[in-house]
Each structure stands twice: as structure tokens, then as C-alpha cells.
Amino acid sequence: MIAARTTNHRRRVAAGLLGLIVLLSILAPLLTGTDPRDATTGAELVSPSWQHLFGTDLLGRDVYSRTLYGGRRTLGVALLTVGVTLLPGLITGLAAGYFGGWIDRALMILMDALLAFPALLLALALVALLGSGAIQIALAVGIAGIPAYARVTRAAVLEARTRMFIEAARAAGAGPAGILWRHVLPTIAPPLLAFAGVMLSWAILNSAALMFLGYGGDLSAPDWGVMLADGRAAFRTAPWVATAPGAALSLTVLAINLLAGSLDSRPGRE
């Protein structure tokens, strides 16, 4: 009982926090009149004040505005990343888990081979092939995430397969596509959704890492990873430049982790 209440409470707090961050990012143009790329001459490295809530950076840009707009880009790229991961990962996992046999073995060996590359290294190598840019980063990180998602999907399908009703449906003459769509997917949706949440926080951290390393293309576009890199250079003089995006990044990931954890808190599911 108590555990359930704590979980509910946590879920609400996490969802609220995440909702707030997303809302702030979406509504950025309404919440600030300052262009995040606009450098104001004479207002460089200004400490936080009413005029500049989070201060300004080395070039005189408003950190508050950049943090809000940065959320759009950071979260946008992360969502795209998860998109790149989800579909191929899901299809591979479903196919492997449902058909079993040699299909399963072949697919899983391929996934294991991909999984053998440390994800960030694989993403970096892909960026070297694809070039710099937000889309490229999403592709690179997304591809690096596929094997993990395929594995989790497969495990969930295997568990679902053992349940009676699928066997029953098959006996009733339903085709594989129909069974997967009507029976398997609904059963495995909760854990997969929870894992998609885990993937999202992973995607945010990793795509921001590539942004931080300078592979983001558009230089002046606000992004939490880019801002952390900018802020690092001036941290001793102006700690606020890195603190705002750093805190935003951590809070977002924290909220997603809590939410993903509570989505799937059936006992024994850790």
C-alpha cells in the first residue's frame, strides 16, 4: 500500500516536472522576448539580474532565452533519436521473439555484434561518416540504440508468447501479423513504453554529448550540450552560463528516469 502510494506520488511529481520542462521549451517564444542568438554589445558575461534572469554568456547572449530555446533543440533531437531507435528495434525484436528459430538466432547475433560496440563510440564513428549536424547526431545515436531496444522487445515477446491466449489465437487461425498487432503488442506495451523512457533519457545524454563535443553543425543554435561547452570555457568568471543548461539537462533526465521507473514498477521487473 505504502509503496504503491509513493510510486503514485513520484509519478505525479516526475510527470509534472517533465511536463513543465516540455511546456517551457514549447512556449519559449512566449516566455522571452529575447532572440537566443542575439548578442548584445556591452552586455557580455553579465551576472543574473532581472533583465537577464540567468545572466549572459561571453558573447552577450541571454542565457535564460538560450536555455528555453535550447530545450527545444535538445529534446527535439532526443525525440528524433528515439524515433530512429524505436521502429527498427521494435520490428527486429518482434520478429526475433515471435518467429524464434533461425530467424531469432540470426537477428540476435547481428544485434549482439552491434551491441558489442560501446554505444558512444559507435555514435562517434557514425558521425565521422555522416558529418556534423542535428539530424546526423540523431541518426548516429539512434542507430547505436537499436540493438538494446531489439533485445528488450524480444524478451518481452518471449514472455508474452508463453501465455495461453496467443496460442489460442494461433489455433483459431490468425496470421502472424494479426497476432502480433492484436495480441502481442498490447501485452508488451507497458514494459516497452517504460524502456522507451529509459531510451529517451539515454538519447538526451548521448546526443547532448555529441553536441558538447562540437558535432552539432549550426554553431549559434542554442542547445544544452553546446551551452555546457560554451559555459565550461568561462566557468570561473561566469558559472551561470553552464549552470542553467546543466541543471535543465539533469532535471529532465531525472524526471524521465523517475517516470520510466514508475511506469513499470510491477514487482520482479527490475
Binding site: 533519457s201 547532448a208 554529448a209 550540450g225 561547452a229 559555459g231 565550461r232 539533469s250
Partner: peptide, 11 residues
């Protein structure tokens, strides 16, 4: 879990 190396490193 939610603070990446490139942020804690600076701090």
C-alpha cells in the same frame, strides 16, 4: 544517473 560526465567534470 542524470548528470553526464561533461557536466560533472566541469563542476
Amino acid at each position: 544517473l542524470s548528470t553526464p560526465v561533461y557536466w560533472t567534470g566541469t563542476l
